[in-house]
Design a protein around this nucleic acid. Sequence first.
DNA 1: TTGAAAGCGCTAACAC
DNA 2: GTGTTAGCGCTTTCAA
Lengths: 352, 352
Amino acid sequence: MNDSSHPKNSPAPERARRRKSGGITLADVAKLAGVAPITASRALNTPDAVSPAVLERVKEAVARTGYVPNLLAGGLASRKSRLVAAVVPTIAGPVFMETVQALTETLAASGYQLMLGQTGYHNSREDALLDAIIGRRPDGIVLTGIMHSAEGRRRLIASNIPVVETWDLTATPIDMLVGFSHEKIGQAVAEYLHAHGRRKVASISGTDERAERRNRAFSDAARALGMAPMGQVPTVMAPPPTTIGSGRAGLAELLAKAPEVDAIFCSSDMLALGVLIEAQARGIKVGQDLAVIGLGDMEFAKDANPALTTVRLDGTTIGRTAARFIIDRTEGRPIATKVCDIGFSIVERASV
Amino acid sequence: MNDSSHPKNSPAPERARRRKSGGITLADVAKLAGVAPITASRALNTPDAVSPAVLERVKEAVARTGYVPNLLAGGLASRKSRLVAAVVPTIAGPVFMETVQALTETLAASGYQLMLGQTGYHNSREDALLDAIIGRRPDGIVLTGIMHSAEGRRRLIASNIPVVETWDLTATPIDMLVGFSHEKIGQAVAEYLHAHGRRKVASISGTDERAERRNRAFSDAARALGMAPMGQVPTVMAPPPTTIGSGRAGLAELLAKAPEVDAIFCSSDMLALGVLIEAQARGIKVGQDLAVIGLGDMEFAKDANPALTTVRLDGTTIGRTAARFIIDRTEGRPIATKVCDIGFSIVERASV
DNA sequence: TTGAAAGCGCTAACAC
DNA sequence: GTGTTAGCGCTTTCAA
C-alpha cells in the first residue's frame, strides 16, 4: 500500500483523502502471501503462469481471508464482464423459460452470469432497458424475438457487443441468429391437418407478431389446400398471455361462428389445453369430431387427455446455442456460422 | 487530461503505455460540452446540481456522441452496482416465475437490473454461484427458499450485502425475510378439508424440503382431526419438477393402496391438474366422490374442470416486497421491519 | 517467473 | 455551481 497516504501534518498540499472500503482486496491477499498484487492476480486467473510454491501461498491467503475478487474492477480493467444479458418479453410465458434456463446453465458452466431484462409485450421500455444493459458492458446480449426499434438496433450495433437474436429467422439480423421459421410452421401445420383428412380448419392465435405470422401462413396454406370452405379460415385472437381460459373461450366463440369446424390450430399449448377442456365439457370428442394441434410441446402436452398433438420448439437448444455463440465469440474462437435454423417438428399424439 | 502522457522522447523513465479503448467516455462528452468530467457526471446523475445551461450542453453532447455510461466504472467508484441478484432453484417451475417477474419489474422501475442464478435443485452449485454473485458486488441478493450450506451463509454475512430470503419463514434469517409458514398451510388445508366433511384424506407431495414440511404438518393435523382412519395419511411422493404426469400417476398409485380416499392435498397445482385429468379418465367425480386441493393458484386453476380449489401464494407480492426491502436499504431509507409474513389464502372452487 | 508503473472510466471529497 | 485531485480494485504493458 501507499506509504505516503497516511495522514501526517506535512506542509505539502494536502488534498482529497479517500474512502478505503474496508473490504478485502487482492492487495491484502498479495501482502499476506508475500507477493506483488499482479502475481496474486495471475495465481487466480492463470495458475499455470506462476510457480507452484506461489500458487500454494496465494491460495492459502485467499482461504484465510475469504477474499472474493471484485469482478467490477476486473471487468473494468480487462474489458470482459463475464456477464451476458438476455432480453425477453416476459418470463411468465413458459415459452421463453426453457431458453432462459438453458442460457443460465450453459453460461454458468463457463463462468458467465446471466442478466435478465423484461420488456413486457410493449416495446416502450425496450430503449431504456437497452441502455441499462449496454452500460454494464456485457460480453453478449441475447434477444428473444427481434429487436424492433430502429434506435435500439442502432445502439446495439454501435455498442459493438455480440448480439444473438432468437426465436425467429430474419433476413437482416443485427449480428447472430438462432431460430426457426414461423411461416414454415404455419404451412406445415396446414399440410399436416390436410394429410389427416381435415377439411374445415380454424385457428386460435395469440396477438403477438410471431403468432400472427404463423397464423397468416397457416391460413394461406389452408386456403390453398381447400380447407377453408367459406373462403377464409375462421380465427379467434387471444391477447397475451395465452391461457387455458382464453382457449376455452376461444373454442366457444369459434363454434358459435363456425360450428362445422373439424380442426383447430392453437398458437400455444395453453390455448390447446383450454380447447381440450372446453370440448370435454361440451361432449365433443377430440381426435374424432375435432382435431386440436398446439404449439410448444410443453411438459403437460403428453399428459393431456387426449394427449396433445403439437409443434415442438426446442427452447433449450436455442438457449444453449445462443450461449455457445457468445462464449465462442468472446473467447476468440472462430465460429463457423452466424445463423442457425434449429427447425421444429410436429409431435403426433391422440388429439389429431 | 494529463498533458505529460503524450509520448515524447523525454529522458524520464518511459513505462507501460496503455490501451485506449476507442469507446466514448464521459471525458469525451465533457470536452464536447466544454465542462469538466465531474460536471458532466453531475449533469447525468444529479441534474439539479448543475445550471440549466450546462445541463443542456451535456445532454446535447450525450445525444451527439451516443454516449452510454460505463456502469462498471461507476459502480467501482461509487460502490453501488445497481445490480440485484436472485437465486432460484429453477425458473422452470412456474412457482418462482411470478416472483422473478415482479422482482425484475420493481427493480427496473428504480433503475436496478436483475442478475439471475439457478442452483438446480441440488445444493452443490450453490457455493460457486455465490462467489460469482458476490464478486459482482450486487446491491442486494434475493434468495428463494433458504440458503443452506453453512459456508454459504457465512460468505453472505461476511459480504455485507443486503440479503432477502423468501418463500419461507425461519427463526434465524441471514438478514431480511419475506415469506409465509409452510406448517400453517399444511394445518389449514387439513382443517379446511375437515370442515368440508372429508374424513379419509391423502396427499401427493413434492420431495423438496418445503413441500415435505407442509405435508408433515398436514398429516399431523389430519391425524389429530381423525381424518386418517388407518392411523396415517397415505402419501405419494413426486420428485421435482412436479408435473401433470406425476399427478396422474400419483392418483393411480393412491387409489391402488387406499381406494377409499375422499380428499387429496397436492403440493402443486400441476399435480392437482394431473389428478383432475386422471380422475376424469377414470370416471371419478371430483368435487363429489373426491375432493382435490392444489397449491399455487396458478393461472389455469380457475379454468380447470372442475375449477380447482387451491392455496394461493402471492409470488408477486413476495418479489415486490423483496425488491422494496433492498432498494430502501440501498438508498438509505429506514425500513420498519426486516421480516414480512405475507400469509396465504385458500381459494374455494368446485374441486372440494 | 515476477514485478513496477500506468491506467480502465468513473465518482467522492474537497476547494474555490 | 464548478473544478481539482485522488483514488475504487483490478489487469495490461513493459522490463527484469
